[in-house]
């Protein structure tokens, strides 16, 4: 799993040397930003169901045709799967906040995403709408501190960009 620490270790290992002062400086930089990231991760973990449900409702509201017979949100099974997918993205964003890089999103969310959605003939626009809603819903300092919100929004933007 890619993070600042593992990247530093991998390059030190490739050169066969002990961690240098500059290696330790990069790790320290990552640790300094970690407080905000962990705050965002903590808040998101506490509210993940509400956040995911709101985002899901927002995208169905924007694309009501999805409820029509034969569409992606037509039956109860489909509805729960759609809601699960949104929560899945939010969970991967929480992981990325913890790790401090986009590794979890890349490896478990984005890799193969296009192929899967094409095979299942799912539209990506509703996902973009759901994540955009979450992107604009967060508010500092009501939900979390400004720095934490910045980290959280950056990851939502990353996920949105991967879909559009």
């Amino acid at each position: 799993m890619k993070s600042v620490v593992t990247t530093v270790i991998a390059s030190a290992d490739a050169a066969g040397r002990f961690p240098t002062t500059s290696d330790l400086e990069s790790v320290q930089g990552s640790i300094q930003r970690a407080t905000a990231r962990l705050e965002a991760a903590e808040k998101l973990a506490g509210n993940i169901d509400a956040v995911a449900t709101e985002a899901y409702n927002a995208c169905i509201k924007k694309y009501p045709y999805l409820n029509n017979a034969g569409e992606a949100n037509s039956t109860d099974t489909f509805k729960s799967k759609c809601a699960r997918d949104i929560k899945h993205y939010m969970r991967l964003i929480q992981y990325s906040l913890v790790v401090g890089g986009t590794g979890p999103l890349d490896e478990w969310g984005i890799a193969g995403q296009r192929e899967v959605y094409r095979a299942l003939s799912l539209p990506t626009a509703p996902y973009v709408e759901a994540l955009s809603f979450a992107r604009n819903r967060g508010c500092a300092p009501r939900d979390m501190s400004p720095q934490a919100l910045t980290e959280y929004n950056a990851l939502l933007d990353y996920a949105i960009n991967s879909l559009s």
């Binding site: 799993m1 993070s3 992981y95 401090g100």
Partner: peptide, 12 residues
């Protein structure tokens, strides 16, 4: 390769 953070993520 994992670190303390990614270990927590893999476990979750």
């Amino acid at each position: 390769m994992l670190d303390a953070f990614s270990r927590a993520v893999v476990a979750a």
